[in-house]
Design a protein around this nucleic acid. Structure first.
Lengths: 178, 178
DNA sequence: ACCTGAACACCGTTCAAGT
DNA sequence: ACCTGAACACCGTTCAAGT
């Protein structure tokens, strides 16, 4: 994307800001990490962030855009054999990023960029699940519905406390594709 | 609960504050309705709210505590014959209160009172679904799991946009108890 | 017991000015 | 093009003082 040295530097700095924001958000939560704190950590003045990002929500989306390809790659590379193992791997990873996932949902009502990002994310997850369900032998007219249900259950697991046993039972139920 | 005239007046005023807060939150959202705005509408000064409530989160919980018994009563009184109709009724009602439901989830990470309330709410909903599933003939060892899944799907429906047809298909799937 | 005016500490964001 | 110091408008909450 960057075309010359200048653009590369700008890209690097942008990425540095995103990295610091992500680190602080994961450590202290989205709401409890101010733009001032992010700027301090990145070694710039607070308003400089606004040169690179339209606002805190845009910074959040940039953070997610950095994480998700990594996750997708890891998902493929993991090469786990069973559906249950793959689902468990995915939810374990997503839990790592839970403060950001939470923030995405909390900002949904207030921010258009977040809304757009979330929409895309859901579609990607549903595509993944639909493909899996079809391979599992679920009838094609039923698969999309069950994929939507699957994403809801997945989100429920992410946002609610539960025991390891409960998680296992629910993921096993999902893997079954029933 | 109130023991004398003085307590009754205090109770009425408390309720008046909750009513105004609920009205404004439903109209403009939780975050976009300041304590000052609620006080203005209730005809008191902002800090007077803090005489009756520990904070904005406590006011939110009080609002939910006012709504849920009404909902539970309406659920029973509706006397709808089929599970699908009852689920549809329930989600239609809950959608009416969506700004408050959203706020509950958004405040989960920040407020202990909200966390406690949410926990109770989930347990109540799961009990409702478990009872329904058992009546539907679902094996007892499977019912609690499916009830948890059901609440996740229910919450997913509440917090994500979808067509009427999608909602119907998902609720029908839930009513089936599969 | 109940209520208030004024202030506090903080927030995301913007402005005017610099290089 | 990039960065900053200072300010803005606002927020939930608290304090000191009243009745």
């Amino acid at each position: 994307m960057p075309r010359n040295k200048r653009d590369i530097d700008a890209q690097l700095k942008r990425d540095h800001i995103v990295a610091q924001a992500t680190r602080l958000w994961l450590a202290h939560g989205f709401d409890d990490t101010s733009m001032a704190a992010i700027a301090r950590e990145a070694g710039i003045s607070p308003n400089t962030i606004y040169w690179y990002f339209a606002g805190k929500d845009d910074l959040l989306v940039a953070a997610m855009d950095r994480i998700t390809p990594e996750l997708a790659q890891g998902y493929v590379l993991s090469g786990l054999p069973t559906a249950l193992e793959r689902l468990t791997w995915l939810i374990t990873q997503l839990k790592t990023y839970n403060p950001l996932v939470q923030a995405i949902h909390a900002r949904l009502a207030h921010s258009e960029v977040v809304r757009v990002w979330h929409e895309r994310y859901h579609q990607a997850l549903e595509r993944l699940l639909t493909a899996h369900l079809l391979k599992q032998g679920v009838p094609p007219e039923r698969a999309p519905l069950m994929a939507t249900v699957g994403t809801f259950v997945f989100e429920g697991l992410l946002s609610h406390p539960h025991t390891q046993a409960q998680q296992h039972a629910i993921l096993a139920w999902m893997a079954e594709g029933r």
